[in-house]
């Protein structure tokens, strides 16, 4: 583990029943580093980042997030989750709460912030994702792209040190993908540590410090975007790239 790494995964193994879904994974993420994880479906990308905030439990190995160790028994789950924000493929906004309430719920109930302060902070983040005018609408009244930006704002209200994105644009119409990606680029430019599972290779090329290619539950190749696209080493990587970059 290097001195300035904020997420450190070592010897991670996970099984779904008998299926060995993550195999001996090691990954160090430095502070402020942007990592894009790609790979064919079923390769364990989502499972990997869901392990980081303990939405999935794992059987072997250890994950350290900002100095908090998450062993197989998941005892310090809540401490880790407070430091890690997550954005889901299907948004998972709370439909019975307004946009503003979605963004103030966790600060009020987890961080014990007074309601007024939480609302002021939430408005700041909603402005950052450029939808402050929708604050009093319900999620069901927004477009997919707007909902995903609210989800990003909601995660940011907890002041996370790391942001996880689980295919954030896969459920969106093509013309909405851009607005979400722009928000993510802004976030990256502000120096947020990000782990992004995505098939948006344009985003990877533009933003990522490192691209991690996974297949069959293991990391096949990790490299800078320039080298990854121009000069893939492993045969499996070349096959994958040839399929998606036609």
């Amino acid at each position: 583990m290097t001195a300035n790494s904020i997420v450190s995964i070592s010897g991670l193994n996970k099984w779904f029943g008998d299926f060995h879904v993550l195999r001996d994974l090691n990954l160090e993420v430095g502070k402020g580093e942007r990592i894009v994880i790609c790979g064919p479906s079923g390769s364990g990308k989502s499972t990997l980042i869901r392990c980081i905030n303990a939405l999935e439990e794992f059987q072997e190995g250890r994950i350290v997030v900002d100095g908090i160790e998450l062993g197989p028994n998941l005892r310090r789950v809540d401490d880790v989750r407070r430091e890690v924000g997550m954005v889901f493929q299907s948004f998972n906004l709370f439909p019975h709460l307004t946009v503003l309430e979605n963004c103030t719920l966790a600060p009020i109930w987890v961080r014990n912030l007074p309601k007024k302060d939480a609302e002021a902070a939430a408005m700041k983040y909603l402005e950052r994702v450029k939808i402050p005018q929708q604050a009093n609408k319900y999620p069901g009244q927004l477009s997919g792209g707007q909902q995903q930006r609210v989800a990003i704002a909601r995660a940011l209200t907890m002041n996370p040190k790391v942001m996880l994105f689980d295919e954030p644009t896969s459920a969106l119409d093509p013309e909405m993908v851009k607005e979400v990606l722009d928000t993510m680029v802004d976030l990256a430019n502000e120096g947020m540590t990000m782990l992004v599972v995505t098939h948006e290779m344009g985003f990877a090329r533009e933003v990522a410090d490192r691209i991690v290619f996974m297949d069959e539950g293991q990391i096949i190749e990790a490299n800078t975007p320039a080298d990854f696209f121009a000069n893939p080493q492993h045969a499996r990587t070349r096959l994958f790239l040839s399929q998606i970059l036609r």
Binding site: R82, F88, A106
Partner: peptide, 10 residues
């Protein structure tokens, strides 16, 4: 819904 709530630390 539960996952999102968990991820927020609730």
């Amino acid at each position: 819904q539960t996952e999102a709530a968990n991820a927020l630390g609730l």
